[in-house]
Amino acid sequence: MTARPAAASTAASVLAVDLGKTSCRVRLTQGGRMLGEATAHGAPGLAEADGAQLSFRAIAEAVGRLEQPLPTGTAVGIGAAGSEAAPAAARRLIELVRERFDGPVAIINDALAAHAGAFEGAPGTMLIAGTGAVVFAVDGSGAVAQVDGWGPWLGDEGSGQWLGRHGLVAALRAHDGRGPRTALLADATALTGALASLPHWVSESGTPARQLGTFAPAVIDRAAEGDAVAVEILERAAAHLADTCAAAGLPTVCVAGGLASHPFFAARVRAALDAHGLRETAPKGDPLAGAALIALERSLPYEERITRG
């Protein structure tokens, strides 16, 4: 087994950044003591148009909400979606952050930041189930494997957008008489007031996957109430996520992401993991802890996937 990395200097000040599409969270620590946290609006992602500039604005806004300025030379660790898909944008974001805050910067993709926080750099499987779904597994030799995370149209099976999309499809099938009755039909109708408007509703925001994901809570709630159609969708989603974890080949799984915050769904995922002989474990830290770790630690097994500047 790979030993847990030695702790970095406790005297250093670190700004950890969890840069998501919905929100940007920052945490400032120094000498192992937390100085403050703040949250601002998120950014579309580094791989999107103007991704670096929009990401920097989100970080700067969040930092501006801290109650104290950053100490000189503060190291910055950022977990951000798209950092590997758009390496040029990641490097540009580093330039922008260094120009403003004058300290070393490290960027890793948001999923590996969550893994680093959950396992403190040690081996294990990290399932992140939110709007999308992806598994990152780090084995005892330090090898990193990604399973799924192929996006809403090619993968992300069992994710929030998957749940929402299948819930809406089930509602429309019930409306047409092509499928069984379900309370999801009323929920789908309530989104726009008329089912004929649903296709436009999905696309009008410009982010259809995220839009579809907003219907996932309705599917989970209806399943918890015993709606047979919603229960079947939920069980399929949990099975997909467990299959993804099993493909990683490691026995210990940490589950994170927005879907994990729903107790009913989390219980179904846990049961599906048990069916594969996998054990769920609680995270030791959050994505911000992972971002702080990559800011100072250079012997992590996925160092080659960190962009530094």
Results as ranks from 00 to 15, higher is better:
Pro5Ile: 06
Ala6Met: 13
Ala6Cys: 07
Ala11Met: 05
Ala11Leu: 10
Ala12Asn: 01
Ser13Gly: 05
Val14Pro: 02
Ala16Arg: 07
Asp18Met: 11
Gly20Asn: 09
Ser23Lys: 13
Cys24Met: 04
Gly32Met: 06
Gly36Ile: 09
His41Glu: 10
Gly45Arg: 07
Glu48Ala: 15
Phe56Lys: 11
Phe56Ser: 02
Arg57Lys: 12
Glu61Arg: 00
Glu61Lys: 00
Leu66Tyr: 07
Ala88Gln: 14
Arg92Asn: 14
Glu99Ser: 11
Ala106Cys: 15
Ala106His: 07
Ala106Gly: 03
Gly140Ser: 09
Gly142Cys: 04
Ala143Lys: 04
Pro152Thr: 11
Trp153Asp: 10
Trp162Asp: 13
His166Cys: 12
His175Lys: 13
His175Arg: 15
Thr182Trp: 07
Thr182Tyr: 06
Asp187Arg: 14
Thr189Gly: 14
Gly193Met: 02
Ala194Ser: 12
His200Leu: 12
Pro208Asp: 05
Leu212Phe: 06
Leu212Tyr: 09
Leu212Asn: 11
Ile220Met: 02
Arg222Trp: 08
Ala224Gln: 13
Glu225Leu: 10
Ala228Lys: 12
Ala230Pro: 05
Ile233Gly: 12
Ile233Leu: 11
Ala242Asn: 04
Ala246Cys: 02
Ala247Val: 04
Leu250Phe: 00
Pro251Arg: 07
Thr252Ser: 03
Ala256Leu: 13
Gly258Met: 01
Phe264Arg: 10
Phe264Ala: 15
Arg268Met: 00
Ala272His: 04
Leu273Glu: 04
Asp274His: 03
Thr281Lys: 08
Ala289Glu: 13
Ala292Met: 13
Ala292Ser: 15
Gly309Lys: 06
Gly309Asn: 15
